[in-house]
Design a protein around this nucleic acid. Structure first.
Lengths: 255, 255
DNA sequence: TTTTGACCCTGACCAAAGTCAAGGGGCGCC
DNA sequence: GGCGCCCCTTGACTTTGGTCAGGGTCAAAA
């Protein structure tokens, strides 16, 4: 199983434990930068040095609110990584109002598709909350892709893996009740297939709740119910009495 | 807006209307094959002739239930596209039982990641319902990627677009009530930004319900409630009285 | 013609999640 | 210590979606 908190916990290692603490206002420097960027879908599974070459002509930006990053129609010679703050992508409707297509929060990227295919941004992008961004230049990115053929394959492979992760998350959201999603989240934190397991939550309950798509009050109740199934929660450490039987419960379709 | 029924309706054109009818038992031939394959994430946005080159040494397979496609550890010199039937990916637990990691249904693909990166399948694959598959050979695929550099970029771009689609669907599932998801689905069927719009559902209500993650009874109720908001459904044709105001209702966060 | 089955709607009921409000425990700080 | 703050839990209540059962419409088959 892969690390279940991947999109949020910023730690690229599969044996993820806890994040470094509450999200700081990031300064794009050194290893912290690398770890966050390596956690992006686009870079899933790439080595650190490959990453450095890909991002050779990239720059870190500190942007204030209301900064316009690009307009629709502009040449897409870069894409962006959001380390902190928020950026909105929007279109202008015929009658002049703007319709927000997407809002990007840390840590995510946008504009890759435009840069890689059309070469033109189809939407406008504006910073809506003071942001720290990485602007990834096209040149080094592309030349690296060309120079080392395996990089492109591995990047494709990484995106395919992510695609499956997301698809399966969608299925779970649609056909599993919340308590099963919570249970599976916990199970994904351990390698054990049978017997007892001790895991620690990679972040606080508020975030865990939003991760599985419920409110934190509901999460409390779910954890209370799971206690009857041998899942003892205490602070952010959890003991699962019998991993095997819990897995079996989750595998059952429907209710 | 992109065609909202993309994963299911098999019609690659953005101005999607209806599928060709209930899913037939597919025979992998001619244009039908092409359209289905072009609807896959991996091939999103590629032209037909590029596709043909990529799949030059591919073969269509008709597999019976229980056919083992590959075992964990085998060389991954191909990947598979499921046109019909079902295939399970599973691992064997230390104690000999099998744990199903994923089940693939039409139309989807699996094994790309293994083929493109490691070259080894990490799991076992077995047909669990008589299936029509395309086995996409590695050689032609890779040589095409190499010969035409733009293809690789466009494939990467396509996967990035899909990634965003899936991410946004996940967000919707987690933070939007069902009626908003239904409304947004309907809105995505029209290009209109304001005024009246007439759209036709690309498939029956059963599938539409599962598409937005609710039961068909709930969908009926949702559509009944939407009637008060100026959404008149009749058969599979829908009239939206005021697209603008409906969009505004959906844009409101929460409640 | 009747029958059958696919598809859809509706009502009654129930279980579950959201909401609102209150409160407990841990912890740092004055 | 006393205070406030954060995180979490609990209870009461509301809302909503799932479930089950009934029934309507339509078209193709008998």
């Amino acid at each position: 199983m892969s690390c279940p908190c991947r999109p949020l916990c910023l730690v690229p290692k599969p044996n993820c434990s806890k994040p470094d603490g509450p999200l700081p206002r990031h300064r794009a420097t050194g290893p912290a930068l690398a770890r966050q960027v390596m956690a992006l879908p686009l870079f899933d599974g790439l080595e650190h040095d490959v990453l450095e070459r890909l991002m050779a002509d990239s720059t870190a930006l500190a942007c204030d609110r209301r900064t316009l990053l690009f307009s629709a129609g502009a040449a897409a010679d870069c894409f962006y990584i959001v380390l902190d703050g928020q950026v909105k992508l929007f279109a202008l409707t015929p009658d002049g109002r703007e319709s927000i297509v997407e809002v990007f929060t840390p840590v995510s990227s946008f504009g890759e598709a435009a840069m890689l295919s059309m070469g033109i941004f189809p939407l406008h992008a504006e910073v809506i909350e003071d942001a720290t961004l990485i602007k990834v230049g096209r040149r080094a990115f592309i030349t690296t892709l060309q120079s080392d053929r395996a990089v492109a394959y591995r990047m494709l492979a990484g995106l395919c893996r992510w695609h499956q992760r997301l698809s399966s998350e969608i299925r779970h959201l649609k056909e599993q009740p919340p308590w099963q999603r919570v249970a599976e989240f916990l199970l994904a934190l351990t390698d054990a297939q049978v017997g007892e397991a001790l895991v620690s939550l990679p972040f606080n309950k508020e975030i865990l709740a939003s991760r599985v798509g419920i409110r934190r009050e509901s999460l409390s109740r779910v954890l209370a119910r799971l206690r009857d199934m041998g899942v003892r929660t205490e602070g952010n450490s959890v003991r699962i009495d019998d991993v095997g039987s819990l897995r079996r419960l989750c595998a059952e379709t429907g209710h």
